[in-house]
Design a protein around this nucleic acid. Structure first.
Length: 896
RNA sequence: GGGAGGUUAGCUCAGUUGGUUAGAGCACCUGCUUUACACGCAGGGGGUCGCGGGUUCGAGUCCCCCACCUCCCACCA
């Protein structure tokens, strides 16, 4: 339904009895939450055209059990922008998603239910998970599909808790648009995306060295890898050189010595000119390796010459690819050194017995023990065939160096040759940069992060994971008559069968008994990277590939709100997919929220034990107060959770409540004639001046909101509101108290009416509960959703077009200033503020005095200045403004 | 090593295009029960704007250097 438009509404039902004396946020927030649900206030209207809509790509939170006080931070920011746009009359599509796909869920399910997925098992529809399983019972193996369904069961509970928190927070989400990244619709979308990318040539499969986590035993993408500073040591190892002599290399990975395929030095390095082209021999294993030139060798590092292993690092991978040298794989997928046969499988040696014996000391060891052992062996063995000196030269030299880790991992990543699916992103970097520039980033400098990430890409996007709780690849492979799996000719699932589980379902043209048989088929056992699905959140919501009309109404979206650490994953991959599928940007704007940090500026997380639950804050101080805290922080800036600021928010709510009661009381006291007060009645100079400052705030707040800046509108509204309470209300009070229907009083009442309605709507995005409560007393034009302040029109300057511009821009300020000085005099004399003033003398330049004279009556009444006691004189110095010459307080106490 | 953001009162932060004496809130101190609000009101103290240069009549604001904090990125010999 369209929001109501038009002039400022008049009072709907003046009845003081209904206005409560105190604001109970607990009661009010619960009641409004319920009513908003009944009204379906936040429902997206699928019939309205795209250009009248505002579509948000809400971040699906990882459902991980517990929430801390930082979780609502960025969600509040989204909601502020959304509520503003809704009040501008736009049809809002604000969905919620749950990210319950991937490793975190997998680990929790294993612990809670004591089960482990075995991809080889078929789906069992009758199987039921048991929570009450004893710790000592053996871990049960279930099919992947059963495992995934159990994940859904567990995350459902957490999702309920999350939803409850978001509702309490007052997020204006349309809960009918909820999805989960592991649900059937998301799996379908994700698999359809894969098939589309396959057909368009954007994905490929390859057997190649890939980053591998030896604990999780899965491939990992560049975006999920991070450098960590770790201790290591240079080990100087001497290699014998054919024709006599030795050469010493430095390495931090001596355990990979058996995987050495070459020694390389920089082509310009004078020390090694004579060695290029010669053959060296590894100590212990006596493997002949060529000494070659390589640009990546740094003459200043180590000894300037290094060993290339398969694989120590990405440089090794790249050199190996260029060189065409044979692969020597020594590290297994489990992170242990594999059994090897020297003299076979590419493991050349000049002394098979010695090599096999030395390696026998290492086989089966994990990396660290293997390193320790080989160092011992190298210290005992001779460096060359002639046995002069030891292979290990001197003591290892400790260093600190960056090592690549999987972001969730505990041990360094290795490069292992495995078969994986990749998305081609390296060759499309320019196009992806162009896409990034079509999007408006808020704050703008966050785009730089995106660009640096795209420019720094060095691997295609590996999307296959050797895990279970994820979306399967909709792919089978034919098995040849010889029993070999033919990976080159995958059998793709039919689109209308999606989502499929290739391990439980049979490809068209085959029967289930052909699974794993020669001449039959094999299902792809892997699952997709969780980001391969999360990168489709716009398409999941829009019904991409299923409902074209809906897709057109929702895609591309208007806003992607997120935090900065996932620019390289979520934002980047979403841009990738939207470009590959539709040639479009997924959204026109990205807003980046900062982190909530603890007082030591560390990111708040439950593992650090520095958490406060948001629900606790809602109960103690109200959701509005929490939102106030969140709204005070601008986009992109980290912040500390500060209960002091929450308290300020709570105070603002109370003030708004009380000031509103007062204003409504004034209006209602004025009687029925004043129910039709109109903006045109505002004539008094003080009132004109107040409306002028209100207009200014409305204009500036609107402009800021248009740019996704919510902090400034709050600040401006708040400043003027306190001035409204402390000065304007005091100044206008006496005039509005009167009994007669005279223009001066009418003007005051009309200005108060306009002011209150404007403030309520300005604050509505920030403080949805208390503003709705107040709005409902008198301003709701109808029962039901049409009466909600959240469907009311955002204030615009045109509303007060009938109000004249004040003659002087200084009058409000002049009035406030004189009032301030009178109050100061009373406070200093330790008198109450209603103590009468016997004499008042004010001076000032002509402009200021003229301005003051227009509002002097209001000032004198508010300051309790005795009739005829004030003297205003024009001073001699232009530009000096206003000053009080003298304030003399009355001797007598004010009459009560 | 490259890059981004930051450094303003005890704390959290505003300070638009350079322009009087640098602001707010919190905290602190002193008063005031005032017909909306004591969950209030009024007043007060508190700052070499990270350091050092430069441009300018004038710099918190523009330029350069440095320091420190946070984050992002980087080929692990």
């Amino acid at each position: 339904m369209a929001p109501r438009r038009g002039p400022v509404p008049v009072l709907a039902k003046p009845n003081m009895q209904e206005i409560p004396k105190k604001y109970d946020h607990q009661v009010a927030e619960a009641a409004w939450r319920e009513r908003w649900d009944e009204w379906e206030l936040y429902r997206w209207d699928p019939s309205r055209p795209r250009h009248e809509s505002f579509v948000v790509d809400t971040p699906p939170p990882t459902v991980s059990g517990s929430l801390h006080v930082g979780h609502g931070f960025s969600y509040t920011h989204q909601d502020l922008v959304v509520r503003y746009r809704r009040m501008r009359g736009l049809n809002i599509a604000y969905p919620m998603g749950w990210d319950d796909n991937g490793l975190p869920t997998e680990r929790r399910v294993q612990n809670v239910y004591g089960i482990r997925p075995n991809p080889q098992l078929p789906f069992d529809p009758d199987w039921q998970p048991r929570r009450d399983k004893g710790k000592k019972e053996p871990v049960e193996e279930v099919s992947r599909q059963n495992f995934i369904e159990t994940c859904g069961l567990l995350t459902e509970e957490d999702e309920k808790a999350f939803e409850d928190t978001w509702r309490r927070l007052g997020l204006s989400i349309d809960w009918s648009l909820t999805y989960a990244t592991i649900d059937a619709h998301s799996r379908r979308t994700s698999q359809a995306s894969f098939l589309d990318l396959y057909r368009r040539g954007f994905v490929y499969q390859s057997f190649a060295p890939t980053m591998w986590d030896t604990d999780f035993r899965t491939a990992v993408a560049q975006a999920e890898a991070e450098d960590r500073e770790r201790p290591g040591a240079y080990h100087d190892i001497a290699f014998a050189v054919a024709g006599g002599g030795t050469v010493t290399i430095s390495t931090t990975r001596p355990e990979l010595l058996a995987a050495c395929i070459a020694l390389v030095a920089h082509p310009d390095d004078a020390r090694y000119q004579g060695l290029f082209g010669k053959t060296a021999f590894t100590p212990l294993f006596r493997a002949p390796v060529p000494i070659l030139e390589a640009d990546h060798a740094d003459p200043d590092k180590g000894t300037g010459i290094l060993m290339v292993c398969t694989f120590g690092d990405l440089q090794d991978v790249e050199f190996w690819k260029r060189s065409g040298l044979p692969l020597k794989q020594v590290l297994g997928a489990d992170g242990k050194l594999m059994a090897l046969r020297f003299g076979a499988d590419g493991f050349d040696t000049t002394d098979r017995g010695a090599a096999q014996a030395a390696y026998g000391e290492l086989a089966g060891l994990r990396i660290k023990p293997a390193r320790r052992r080989i160092v011992e062996l190298l210290a005992e063995t001779g460096s060359a065939a002639d046995g002069k000196g030891t292979a290990l030269q001197g003591e290892p030299r400790p260093i600190q160096h960056p090592v690549k880790f999987y972001e969730n991992g505990d041990n360094p990543l290795e490069f292992l040759p495995t078969r994986q699916w990749f998305v081609r992103i390296l060759e499309h970097r320019d196009a992806l940069l162009t896409q990034g520039r079509k999007i408006r980033w808020h704050p703008q400098h966050m785009r730089t992060r995106y660009e640096h990430w795209v420019e720094g890409l060095n691997q295609d996007w590996c999307i296959s994971r050797q895990r279970f709780a994820g979306v399967a690849f909709p792919v089978w492979y034919p098995i040849g008559d010889d029993g070999a799996v033919d990976y080159e000719h995958p059998i793709l699932a039919d689109e209308d069968r999606l989502p499929v589980d290739p391990l439980s379902e049979t490809p068209s043209g085959y029967s289930e008994d052909q699974r794993g048989q020669p001449g039959g088929f094999a299902g792809d056992p892997d699952v997709m990277d969780t980001w391969a699905t999360s990168s489709l959140t716009p398409q999941i919501v829009s019904g991409w590939g299923l409902d074209d009309d809906r897709h057109q109404r929702l895609f591309p979206m208007d806003l992607r709100p997120q935090s900065h650490e996932i620019i390289r994953t979520w934002a980047f991959y979403t841009i990738v997919k939207a470009w590959m599928h539709d040639g479009e940007v997924p959204w026109s704007n990205v807003t980046i929220s900062g982190w909530v940090v603890d007082p030591d500026r560390k990111k708040m997380s439950k593992s650090k034990g520095n958490v406060v639950t948001p629900v606790h804050i809602f109960e103690e101080s109200s959701a509005d107060a929490y939102r106030y805290w969140a709204a005070r922080n601008r986009l992109g800036t980290d912040t500390i959770f500060d209960t002091q600021v929450v308290r300020v928010g709570k105070r603002l709510c109370t003030k708004l409540f009380n000031a509103s009661r007062f204003v409504l009381m004034q209006i209602e006291r004025a009687g029925s004639d004043f129910r039709t007060v109109a903006a045109a009645d505002i004539r008094e100079p003080l009132d004109l001046a107040f409306v002028a400052s209100l207009r200014d705030v409305v204009a500036r707040a609107t402009e800021a909101f248009e740019n996704f800046e919510y902090a400034l509108p709050l600040q401006l509204s708040e400043e003027l509101f306190w001035q409204f309470c402390d000065d304007y209300l005091e100044l206008v009070k006496m005039r509005s108290y009167g009994e007669e229907d005279i223009p001066e009083r009418r003007s005051a009442i009309a200005a108060l009416n306009l002011g209150l309605q404007t403030f309520l709507r300005l604050f509505a995005p920030f403080l949805p509960y208390v503003t709705e409560e107040i709005w409902s007393w008198r301003f709701a034009a109808e029962e039901g959703p049409g009466g909600s302040v959240h469907r009311a029109a955002w204030p615009v300057v045109e509303e007060s077009a009938a109000v004249a511009t004040p003659e002087s821009g200084l009058s409000f300020g002049a009035a406030s200033e004189v009032l301030r000085q009178i109050r100061g005099a009373k406070t200093q004399a330790k008198r109450s503020l209603r103590w009468p003033v016997a004499e008042l003398s004010i001076g000032g330049d002509e402009e200021a005095v003229t301005a003051l004279r227009t509002v002097l009556d209001d000032v004198l009444r508010a300051g309790a200045v005795a009739e005829g006691a004030a003297k205003v004189v024009v001073g001699e110095n232009p530009g000096e403004g206003l000053f009080i010459v003298e304030v003399t307080l009355a001797e007598e106490e004010p009459a009560s």
